[in-house]
């Protein structure tokens, strides 16, 4: 008998992704769905998709989902989570959604330490509207609204969301990942799983930033896009765990235990 080794996660609908070839959204969607399945939380999960390329995320996720206006996902997630504290609530946001129009809602949800999970897709460009400059576009990056490349004196600097949010005492877990290689995808999956687990455990606000390729608006091939993440984008936005309070606490505890044993 043949063994099924790959299939669609239960928490995904069968719809074909509308995303461009080489886009990171579909990978991120799938990872989230896999984690929801693995943690067996499909029935208690409520997702909040953004305005942006992932606005139709509810066509792919087979969990309850409610649309948020541009940038307001964390406010909406706050309302849901406070009314239903035993549900798992996540918002899925792009760079414009989180770091520009919704910076206040995101920042303050983080500062309140809302026990929610934010998946932050950073591709450094406004995808859905046709490739305009994002708050995370790197200096020199050409977009339709920075045609000669982003200049700090005119356009400001790219915002390092993870680093900024990590300064807030309300945040529990912040990690920056990417999805440009099998290894990085597995790492991202682990991070998403940890973030959801922390929420289930009531540890507070977590944010997973995913550097995501946008070949269409970067005007590169998918392969070049993946390379660009490694060679350029991740230099500006270093990968790794930025903050992990629950792990630090448990490390402290272990140290304390050792000390006690000794």
């Amino acid at each position: 008998m043949m063994k099924k080794v790959f299939g669609r996660p239960r928490s995904m609908k069968g719809n074909i992704f509308h995303y461009c070839a080489g886009c990171g959204h579909s990978i991120a969607h799938r990872l989230i769905a896999e984690v929801i399945d693995e943690l067996d939380i499909r029935g208690i999960t409520i997702g909040v998709p953004p305005a942006g390329c992932a606005v139709l995320a509810y066509n792919y996720f087979d969990v309850d989902m409610i649309e948020a206006q541009h940038g307001r996902g964390p406010a909406m997630a706050t309302g849901i989570k406070r009314v239903l504290p035993d549900r798992v609530v996540f918002s899925y946001q792009g760079d414009g959604d989180l770091a520009a129009i919704g910076i206040a809602e995101s920042f303050h949800a983080a500062n309140r330490g809302e026990n929610i999970t934010v998946i932050f897709m950073n591709n450094g460009v406004y995808g859905m509207t046709g490739g305009q400059m994002a708050p995370t576009s790197i200096l020199g990056q050409k977009t339709t609204t920075s045609p000669t490349g982003r200049q700090n004196i005119l356009d400001g600097y790219p915002i390092k969301v993870c680093e900024v949010f990590s300064l807030l005492p309300g945040t529990a877990y912040i990690e920056r990942c990417t999805v440009n290689s099998p290894a990085s995808i597995l790492k991202t999956r682990k991070a998403i799983r940890k973030a959801f687990q922390y929420q289930i455990d009531g540890r507070g606000f977590s944010l997973i930033e995913i550097l995501s390729p946008c070949p269409t608006n970067w005007k590169m091939t998918p392969i070049d896009s993946c390379r660009w993440i490694d060679e350029v984008m991740s230099k500006q936005f270093p990968l790794g765990v930025i903050k992990d309070v629950p792990a630090e606490v448990s490390d402290e505890r272990k140290k304390g235990d050792k000390h006690h044993d000794g």
């Binding site: 206006q69 406010a75 706050t78 406070r82 009314v83």
Partner: peptide, 11 residues
């Protein structure tokens, strides 16, 4: 928008 979320959640 918090109100919208809470309302959607049934409160």
């Amino acid at each position: 928008h918090m109100v919208a979320g809470a309302s959607a959640a049934g409160a």
